[in-house]
Design a protein around this nucleic acid. Structure first.
Lengths: 197, 197
DNA sequence: AAATATATTACGATTTTTGTATTTTATTAT
DNA sequence: ATAATAAAATACAAAAATCGTAATATATTT
């Protein structure tokens, strides 16, 4: 399967856009083809069905996130500044994301994307965990904080976010995600009376 | 048909919300029922099909607009201030509206809502036209402006707005609508060197 | 010129959606 | 309390949309 074909990436980026905006359930394969200017046959040359397309869209999203994450971590700035940048990145990256998309990933049994998302997100998590672990040893992060706890929360986060009850409190999914990200990042640093022990 | 029943207005306001967000095509009747906590049978007691529901949602939207418009016009403030308020109102009223909704009204042949929207919008237009006509006679609006031209534009506006090409220039449908509204309102007043003739 | 990729069209299978009917359960009015 | 009405729940046939594949035609590339 020629994964670096033009048509392939047309389909993938079109699907990402449509899924991002409307969720997966509301978007049909034929709609993706139409928007990507690709015939249905061409679609099926690359993807066997909608669930696989969904998985690859998830891959694309996480791959791009990892890439951007690494770029920031490789910069020659302080750890705290890096974290601030990551926050900004998360803000940009979640712009206009729909609750429908999150929901289809975590609650649509038929698609079965939850496991895939968790698996890929966990890989990403692992990398971040290494970086935070180093920072903790250097005293940049509170030493009495169990990083495992933060990552447990992180894994549960997206799932929790698909609860409409929670979303009602916010005007957008992005706002909710940022609230969480802010909480984690700014709750992580030792402040004022918080001794490094 | 008991049009002031609780169930009836539950269905209508739920449909308005869902249509507003996702457009009409992407939302099924059963989804509306589920969200409104109403059985399908109850739905069909009030509406004969989706197109009729669409028409009544349009009615609801325009009725509410007219009501708010009148409230502002009845205030004891200057005409220019009233126009500013109307602009603000339009900004609030179009918040988060989706391109899909506009599109389904104007380009979805199957639903045939375009005519209904134009008819109802025209009634509203007529009322606004009377108010502007009075203001023009008083010299508050440029006397050499043909109001007919403004209203012709207005009638075409929503239709034009459903062109994705145009929408690409803006980040949201609301931004596009506000751009237009600003243009019309602030192009209407005599300024600096513009004599009242 | 041959091989490959893609579009077009068609089509059966499946799934979703629609609209109605029937039965059961609440609610309201008398 | 009882009858009348409204609504929910369930079931279901008909229609429409969507899916996935096949066959053929048309570009594109090798």
């Amino acid at each position: 399967m020629n994964t670096n074909s033009q048509k392939y990436s047309d389909i993938l980026s079109t699907a990402k856009e449509l899924f991002w905006k409307h969720g997966i359930r509301r978007v049909s394969i034929e709609e993706v083809c139409r928007e990507a200017n690709v015939s249905k046959m061409t679609f099926y040359r690359f993807f066997s069905n909608k669930a696989e397309l969904g998985r690859e869209v998830i891959d694309k999203i996480i791959d791009e996130s990892i890439e951007k994450y690494r770029e920031i971590m490789s910069r020659d700035i302080s750890f705290e500044e890096k974290m601030k940048e990551q926050l900004l990145l998360k803000f940009e990256g979640t712009r206009e994301i729909s609750a429908e998309f999150i929901n289809d990933i975590f609650s649509n049994e038929k698609l079965g994307l939850k496991e895939h998302w968790l698996k890929r997100a966990d890989e990403f998590s692992h990398e971040v965990r290494q970086d935070l672990s180093v920072a903790q040893k250097q005293g940049i992060i509170r030493k009495d904080l169990k990083l495992d706890f933060v990552f447990y929360l992180n894994n549960k986060a997206a799932e929790i976010f698909s609860d409409p009850k929670l979303l009602e409190i916010y005007t957008s999914m992005q706002e909710l995600i940022m609230e969480y990200a802010n909480l984690v990042f700014y709750g992580i640093f030792p402040r004022n009376s918080n001794e490094t022990k």
